[in-house]
Design a protein around this nucleic acid. Structure first.
Lengths: 342, 342
DNA sequence: TTGTATGCGTTATCAT
DNA sequence: ATGATAACGCATACAA
């Protein structure tokens, strides 16, 4: 077992003081070139690694930011994490990721763990509207800035980075209507904020086209478990069929819902898009491999992550945190594919 | 901006010494119940949060483990991360994730960053056979244990957690042969260790069935970019067709390759499985939504993550690291679906 | 039972 | 140009 050298060790070896060594390594103007060279070469040779923990204790900066998401292994989230990660690497920040699993208490715990461990800032996609408002507020008050991403309709005052859910949903709905569909089944997840806005956009588009919203053509699933989502959708479709209520298109409000819907329709031998068109919010990387290839509203996930990080950094580095916060809404892309083409 | 209280603050407020306060909070037997109560209640009331950095500096334990993967946003990897995360939460460990992006130099950098930051152990899915062997070895020598997962055929001596790639590939191949297929195109990624083993299993199965391996029925793609993979596969299929070389099944050696293949076959109007059967290693969560639903070799990703973490913890907590390391091969599941059923 | 003193490794201030 | 010293917040050996 090889011990790591410390400044003290180097100082002793070179018969210098600790402070001289420290200053040499940080290239201080106070130190002569010859000494600097001596120290640096010695440190290099002996593979000196500064102790970041000690440095953090001294400086108060952890160079770490915390990230809280509902689930690491969601395609959508992992793409955002990828963006955060890229941006953080450029700035020499480390990220610590915690999962809330869409549970307010786990979210509270995650915030607490990060606070205890010490972070310079927090990026969070909150569980719900105002979840753990006080904890987040406390965090801000103790000097640790917070930036929201993805689920931006939380009441806390800070920068927020997401998309215009209402507009994106409006456009997707319009796409269906424009292709002649009239009876659109809206399948969504229990209110996770963004889905509420998507529903608003959906309804507004119907209204603008003089179509009345029909509660029969609305389904709200429990978020999370695939099996349950599949069952709900299957049940709903069967119910509609039994009632002779026509459906000629489906709007899927989340990644999982949309893709699962396609699977179910295939299973039920329903012809997509001839019988039923499908469009949905989705960031999966293989829409073309789906049955049939899925028309999607694609979010700029990587950009969301990067922008959120940059905004956070902005606050961290601003001495006097300005009171003006922005909510940034990035553009989504509507990509029509076979599931809506006739 | 609210300042956090320290032990010193509490001591001053309560007119006690720092050590009394420290001991009280850690429930030391040396302190009277009344004092403990006083201190604890005061700390609670004033929302005292211990400074973990200081504690780490003192104790030398960071309670953090590093994880290095090639890409956070791979479905397969994010599922493993999920497992690691779950296990780490139970043990009050934090995880710091770094990406190698399948680049030896980035991997080296990631190891270095983690070493500097301070971790109690490292979980890594290495870029390649023996990548950064010396860095990892140094890490171990300096008392930071390393456990490999997923890509376990690296020469370093430690615990390794993965699957039996050769056997799994053998069984998948057998499944194709059993259903009457004979001309199987093996599509794989440039050697990332595991794929080499999968090829071995594939070849062995052919041999056991007296079928000669045909180099024409082998395609190696560049790992990573979807577009390039798609192009390679399309080109290969067209080439085989032009040469009148029959293909009645495809074996996909990685997640991406397999799903992309399905998309391409649909695009080319090739009937799956009648014309061509498809099976592949894949951990996507929506195989049923694919066109047609994909037969898969599924890895126990969450378990891989959890076991790897537990093994790492074992080494961390063992005072005298035993020299006996195991390579754990978890079971995969072969799930036949429509893409191989006739 | 409580308090004092020391050190973890670094940085920063103030001598020399 | 270099060095001595204190301090960051905590834990702990030792004293009282």
């Amino acid at each position: 077992m090889i011990e790591r050298k410390t400044l003290k060790d180097i100082a002793k070896d070179l018969k210098l003081s600790v402070s001289t060594v420290s200053k040499s390594l940080s290239d201080s103007y106070e130190i002569s070139e010859s000494t600097k060279k001596l120290v640096k070469e010695y440190a290099e040779k002996h593979n000196y690694i500064p102790n970041k923990v000690a440095r953090t204790l001294k400086t108060g900066k952890t160079n770490t930011i915390g990230v809280i998401v509902f689930n690491i292994s969601s395609t959508f989230i992992s793409q955002i994490l990828d963006g955060i990660h890229k941006a953080s690497q450029l700035e020499k920040y480390d990220i610590i990721i915690m999962q809330s699993r869409d549970d307010v208490n786990l979210e509270k715990h995650a915030i607490e763990v990060l606070r205890i461990r010490g972070i310079d800032g927090l990026l969070i996609s909150p569980v719900s509207y105002n979840s753990n408002f006080n904890q987040l507020r406390d965090l801000q008050d103790s000097g640790i800035p917070v930036v929201l991403f993805d689920r931006v309709n939380h009441n806390i005052e800070t920068h927020k980075v997401g998309i215009d859910n209402k507009l994106s949903a409006y456009e997707a709905t319009k796409h269906l209507l424009d292709s002649g569909k009239k009876n659109i089944l809206h399948i969504t997840a229990k209110n996770i904020g963004v889905t509420a806005d998507r529903l608003l956009g959906f309804k507004k588009c119907l209204k603008d086209h003089q179509i009345e919203f029909d509660n029969n053509l609305y389904l709200e699933c429990d978020y999370g478990k695939h099996d349950e989502i599949e069952q709900s959708i299957t049940k709903k479709l069967k119910f509609l069929k039994s009632k002779n209520i026509k459906v000629d298109a489906i709007f899927g409000a989340t990644d999982d819902i949309t893709t699962l819907t396609l699977g179910i329709l295939a299973e039920m031998n329903i012809d997509v898009p001839r019988e039923i068109s499908v469009i949905g919010f989705s960031n999966i990387r293989i829409p073309n491999s789906l049955n049939p290839s899925l028309s999607t509203v694609v979010q700029p996930t990587e950009e969301i992550g990067m922008v959120a990080f940059q905004k956070l950094l902005e606050i961290i580095n601003s001495k006097y945190p300005k009171e003006e916060f922005e909510t940034i809404e990035l553009k989504t892309k509507l990509i029509p594919r076979k599931s809506t083409l006739l």
